[in-house]
């Protein structure tokens, strides 16, 4: 069985590892070619969200192509291992915010374990993979494409299983803290987007403020996330997609023209890789 192992890399700033792999295996080359089937030419179309017929350029760089011996296919319903550390981190968050009793904690862990066991559906079937212009696809650490943002999934699961376990007052605290955390993360994403745009298309202070305000209401629907937005920090020639309304209302004519000339019709893939070594040392579910 050919196991395709490709990963997103910093496309421009860093020399890809595979360039030096001059004596690559023939199968590996076929696999590279397979990946590049996704690469379509795309230049210079407007990059707000109204251009439906845009051509898309897929920016995917492979670190390595591994050829693995034939083995058992992974169980598609099995919960992805990398989500476990996210679940553990969420329980640590609950512990600090809700201050549950020991008995409540036991129930929370049991419910979280059950919710974790049902997360197999987050991995997209290989034949349902997709990419779209200026969108960031979410991938797991094994390059499996994900149906949804794993943090959103773990948090929405927690909001469901917590309610019957803890008191109303504790749950209200969780909701408030959870909302504040999301708002903070959203503000971080918006701050990065505005900074990236301003770097290429200089804006006045009121324009930046207006853009930030509008994006705070909208950015969640774009699929941008703390981790996925960072692919743009490492690929500075590309800019994240902006809603058409933001382009129309914030930019003047000259800026809008410059925006439309940006060569940003790319589809990035961001890999969610839970770094357990750097995470809090609390293992609630095994």
């Amino acid at each position: 069985m050919l196991q395709r192992g490709f990963a997103l890399a910093r496309v421009v700033q860093r020399r890809p590892n595979w360039i030096v792999a001059e004596r690559a295996q023939p199968f590996a080359l076929l696999a590279i070619g397979w990946v590049l089937c996704f690469a379509l030419p795309g230049v210079g179309a407007a990059q707000d969200d109204e251009g439906e017929d845009q051509e898309v350029e897929e920016v995917v760089v492979m670190h390595a192509i591994a050829i693995a011996p034939a083995g058992q296919a992974p169980d598609k319903d099995a919960p992805p291992e990398f989500l476990k550390s996210l679940v553990n981190a969420e329980i640590s968050f609950i512990k600090r915010v809700c201050e549950p009793t020991d008995d409540q904690m036991k129930e929370i862990i049991a419910a979280a374990t059950q919710a974790y066991q049902a997360t197999g559906d987050i991995v997209r079937e290989p034949n349902q993979q997709f990419f779209a212009a200026n969108a960031v696809r979410m991938m797991g650490p094994g390059n499996e494409q994900l149906n949804e943002n794993p943090y959103d999934r773990i948090r929405s699961d927690a909001a469901k299983y917590l309610k019957p376990i803890i008191s109303k007052e504790q749950y209200a605290r969780y909701e408030t803290e959870s909302q504040q955390r999301s708002d903070f993360e959203r503000a971080a994403v918006v701050g990065i987007i505005v900074g990236l745009v301003d770097d290429k298309i200089p804006m006045t202070d009121p324009q930046r403020e207006q853009m930030a305000e509008m994006l705070m209401q909208d950015v969640d629907h774009r699929g941008y996330d703390l981790q996925s937005i960072q692919v743009y920090l490492n690929n500075s020639q590309y800019l994240p997609r902006l809603p058409g309304e933001v382009v129309r209302e914030v930019f003047n004519e000259k800026q809008a023209e410059a925006w439309n000339s940006q060569n940003s019709n790319v589809s990035f893939a961001a890999r969610f890789n839970a770094d357990q070594q750097m995470s809090i040392d609390e293992e609630w579910i095994e």
């Binding site: 996210l86 981190a89 969420e90 640590s92 968050f93 600090r96 915010v97 943090y151 408030t176 803290e177 504040q180 955390r181 903070f184 993360e185 503000a187 971080a188 701050g191 990065i192 505005v194 900074g195 703390l226 981790q227 960072q230 770094d275 750097m278 995470s279 809090i280």
Partner: peptide, 21 residues
């Protein structure tokens, strides 16, 4: 903006309350 990004990302490894953040 870079510090906000850093602290927000850190919060995913090191869960913290609003006051701590």
């Amino acid at each position: 903006a870079a510090i906000t990004l850093f602290v927000a990302t850190l919060g995913r490894r090191l869960p913290m309350t609003q006051v701590q953040r």
